[in-house]
């Protein structure tokens, strides 16, 4: 498995109780062909420095908690193989979020926005369990399935220049999740979500750079969700101008 090769991991450290500003700390770790950056961080934590803080859980690109900037790009550290980088790898917390500690960022802003778009099915009327399931055809499922794959890893927010420019922007993951529920045949909550999506801080703040879709580890394509929402919102806008429109 391992030979004598090593790599240097430059980890951004920030301990709010002692540090005035973030700084980098280097660790030399073994190079293992099969290792991802998360393995290297776990090696540091287990063998070199127990004080390094970072979030992780599943190690298989499902939980969405190990997102960080790796050589300046937002990545899941469990999906970023050492073999794809040089002998020195720089690891920083996700851009555009306040740092809580080391590689851990404060995600309250996202959680608040995510809650605001009502990421759940809002049925016209709840039917009793005795009436059975809400049925859906494969075609109805296909319409929104891609947008269900989001794992809230926030790589898209770290990549989005618009979110960096205006933190009020609702942002890629929340807007594409709104789109996901709007497209669901069981849902009738679109009007409520449009109050957020069709506002200035909603889809209209997006200038379609597309970085969100480039970095998305689950191929959700939030940029497409936002463009589709723009089209639907434009139709709404013109419909509202017609006689009898709301």
């Amino acid at each position: 498995m391992s030979n004598d090769r090593t790599i240097t991991l430059e980890v951004m450290r920030y301990r709010p109780e002692t540090d005035a500003a973030p700084s980098f700390q280097s660790y030399v770790v073994p190079y293992v062909e099969e290792w991802v950056v998360l393995d290297a961080l776990n090696y540091v934590k287990d063998n070199l420095d127990t004080t390094v803080s970072y979030r992780w859980s599943c190690h298989m690109a499902v939980c969405g908690s190990c997102g960080m900037m790796i050589d300046g790009e937002p990545k899941l550290s469990c999906k970023a193989f050492l073999r794809d980088y040089g002998s020195k790898i720089r690891v920083e917390p996700l851009s555009h979020f306040p740092i809580e500690r080391d590689l851990v960022v404060v995600i309250d802003d996202f959680i608040e926005k995510f809650t605001r778009i009502r990421p759940y099915i809002i049925a016209q009327s709840e039917k009793p369990v005795s009436e059975g399931e809400y049925l859906q055809t494969p075609a109805q499922l296909h319409k929104y399935k891609q947008f269900t794959l989001c794992i809230n890893c926030l790589l898209c927010y770290a990549a989005c220049p618009q979110y960096a420019h205006n933190p009020e922007f609702v942002g890629p993951a929340a807007l594409s999740m709104a789109h996901r529920y709007n497209l669901d045949s069981r849902d009738s909550g679109r009007d409520l979500r449009q109050e957020v999506s069709a506002s200035h801080e909603g889809v209209w703040e997006c200038s379609f750079v597309g970085a969100c879709s480039d970095v998305c580890p689950k191929h959700v394509d939030p940029a497409a969700a936002i463009q589709q929402t723009k089209i639907a919102s434009t139709m709404d806008y013109y419909k509202a101008l017609l006689p009898g429109g709301k």
């Binding site: 109050e195 069709a198 506002s199 200035h200 801080e201 909603g202 209209w204 723009k230 434009t234 806008y237």
Partner: peptide, 15 residues
């Protein structure tokens, strides 16, 4: 949140 009037311009842009 205020409804945006961006669709006026964006409609022309998309068309």
């Amino acid at each position: 949140m205020a409804k945006s009037h961006k669709p006026i311009i964006w409609g022309l842009f998309a068309g």
